[in-house]
């Protein structure tokens, strides 16, 4: 099947029911997307499908043949950062960093829908992404900074 990832088309020979997560990681070598739980409880595998944040461990490859898939690598790179990534760097959010690709993808999708979030909105939008290091206070601050940048843009 053909998959479009970060603007590039890939031919992959996989079962229809292989989770997108494992197609990205093991077949295409795109490892910014992380495996954490496999049951949509941690959010480490969050990617965008047509701009919307989803858990790639729950999406079968066969379901997204015609969709545009974006991973953290496609969101922004050091020379051209997304506003959410800039805020994450400014606030030095990451400790181990393993959950942060998913946190950033979640935040980017959420802020696209709501760039003036209240504290409650942030709690609601970000609580399905687990961080075992406990970077939550900095995630809150970084989301606010990113929202401000996006409003200004």
């Amino acid at each position: 099947m053909k998959l479009s990832v970060n603007g590039k088309s890939h031919d992959v020979d996989v079962e229809n029911d292989m989770p997108l997560l494992w197609v990205l990681r093991d077949e295409l070598g795109i490892t910014g997307v992380k495996y954490g739980c496999g049951i949509a409880q941690c959010g480490a595998c969050t990617v965008h499908i047509d701009g919307q944040a989803v858990r790639s461990c729950q999406i079968a490859a066969g379901e997204v043949e015609d969709a545009e898939i974006t991973t953290i690598e496609g969101l922004g790179q050091p020379e051209a950062l997304h506003a959410v990534q800039s805020a994450w760097i400014e606030h030095q959010v990451a400790q181990c960093g393993y959950c942060q690709s998913g946190q950033i993808m979640q935040a980017a999708s959420f802020l696209q829908l709501n760039d003036e979030p209240t504290d409650e909105d942030i709690d609601f939008a970000m609580s399905a992404n687990l961080c075992r290091c406990g970077t939550y206070p900095r995630i809150r601050e970084a989301v606010k900074t990113a929202a401000k940048t996006l409003r200004g843009a």
């Binding site: 992380k34 690598e73 050091p78 760097i89 990451a94 393993y98 942060q100």
Partner: peptide, 27 residues
């Protein structure tokens, strides 16, 4: 200080043990 790994950890570039690839590797 800005952590030496902060940009890589915010852009998906950091390679953890689980991400590493070796030529000819099986899973």
């Amino acid at each position: 200080m800005q952590r030496v790994d902060i940009v890589d950890k915010s852009t998906g570039r950091l390679v953890y043990g689980i991400d590493h690839k070796v030529e000819g590797m099986l899973h």
